[in-house]
C-alpha cells in the first residue's frame, strides 16, 4: 500500500517527475497501477455525487459511466497522441505515451475526488439543475487542467511544444465529448420517473455543440437543420442547453 501512496503523491505533487518517469519508462508498473486506481476511484466518487442529484439508481449509473467515459476517451486519444506527436517532430514510444496519458488521467481523477465534496455540498444546499451542471462542468474542466499539466511536462522543451499540447487538448476534447455524449445522461432532474443507463442514439456531440453555439447566439432553429436526415424533431427539442451534461431535451 505504501508504494501506491508514494506514487499517488508523485502524481499529485511532482507531475514533472511523473512525466519524466513515463518517458524514461522507469518503474512504470507501480505508477500505472496508482494512476488507474486514482482514475477509477476519483471518477466513481465524482460520478456518484453527480448522480446523487436525482438519487436512486442514477447514483450507481453515473458512478459507473464516469470512469467508463474517461477510460474510453483515453483509449481513443492515445493513438492519435502518438501519431500527432511523431508527425510534429516529437516521437515518443507508444508505451510511454500510454503511461503518460494514464498518469494524466489519474491526476484528473484525484482532482475530481477533491471537488466531489464541494459539488455534493452545493447540491445539498439546494443549487438548481443548471447550477449543478455548471459546477460539474467547472470541476471537470479544472481536473482537465490538472491532467494537462502532466501531458505538457511530458512533452519537454523544444519546438512545437505548444502546438503539440494544443493538438492533444483538441483530440481529447473530441474523444471525451463523443464518449460523454454516447453515455449520457449523468445529471438527471429529481422528478424524472425513469432513468435509462444510456439514451438511444440521437444526435451527436458535434451536432449538439453546433446547436448550442447557435443557441448561445440567439439563433433558435429546428434541430433537423443539422440533422437533415433526422425524423421531424419533437417540439422544443431543438436546443440542447448543456451538451452532454444535461439529461437531454425534455
Amino acid at each position: 500500500m505504501a508504494p501506491i501512496a508514494d506514487e499517488l503523491a508523485t502524481i499529485l505533487r511532482d507531475p514533472a517527475g511523473a512525466a519524466r518517469r513515463c518517458l524514461d519508462e522507469d518503474r512504470l508498473r507501480s505508477l500505472t497501477l496508482a494512476a488507474l486506481l486514482a482514475l477509477a476511484f476519483g471518477a466513481v466518487v465524482f460520478g456518484a455525487v453527480v448522480g446523487s442529484y436525482r438519487g436512486g439508481i442514477q447514483l450507481l449509473f453515473a458512478g459507473v459511466k464516469f470512469p467508463l467515459s474517461m477510460v474510453a476517451a483515453l483509449v481513443l486519444s492515445v493513438p492519435a497522441f502518438h501519431g500527432v506527436a511523431a508527425a510534429l517532430g516529437r516521437p515518443v514510444s507508444l508505451r510511454a505515451m500510454i503511461t503518460l496519458a494514464l498518469v494524466a488521467a489519474g491526476r484528473a481523477g484525484l482532482a475530481l475526488l477533491a471537488f466531489a465534496p464541494v459539488l455534493w455540498l452545493a447540491m445539498d444546499l439546494g443549487v438548481g439543475y443548471h447550477g449543478a451542471a455548471l459546477a460539474a462542468v467547472l470541476a471537470y474542466a479544472l481536473a482537465g487542467v490538472a491532467a494537462l499539466g502532466v501531458l505538457l511536462r511530458g512533452l519537454r522543451a523544444g519546438r512545437h511544444r505548444i502546438t503539440t499540447g494544443l493538438a492533444f487538448v483538441a483530440i481529447f476534447l473530441a474523444a471525451s465529448g463523443q464518449t460523454s455524449w454516447i453515455l449520457r445522461p449523468y445529471l438527471v432532474r429529481p422528478q424524472s420517473a425513469e432513468v435509462p443507463f444510456v439514451r438511444s442514439l440521437e444526435g451527436d456531440f458535434l451536432g449538439a455543440t453546433a446547436v448550442s453555439l447557435r443557441s448561445s447566439l440567439g439563433i433558435y432553429g429546428r434541430r433537423d437543420a443539422w440533422h437533415d436526415d433526422a425524423a421531424p424533431a419533437r417540439e422544443g427539442a431543438g436546443v440542447v442547453p448543456l451538451g452532454p451534461w444535461s439529461g437531454g431535451p425534455r
Binding site: 493513438p79 492519435a80 502518438h82 501519431g83 440521437e202 451527436d204 437533415d228 433526422a230
Partner: peptide
C-alpha cells in the same frame, strides 16, 4: 492511423451522415 480509432468511434456513433 493514430486518428483511426477516434474516427471509427465518431462515424459509427454519429446519428447523422453530416456529422
Amino acid at each position: 492511423a493514430g486518428l483511426a480509432p477516434l474516427a471509427a468511434f465518431y462515424v459509427v456513433t454519429s446519428e447523422s451522415p453530416t456529422a
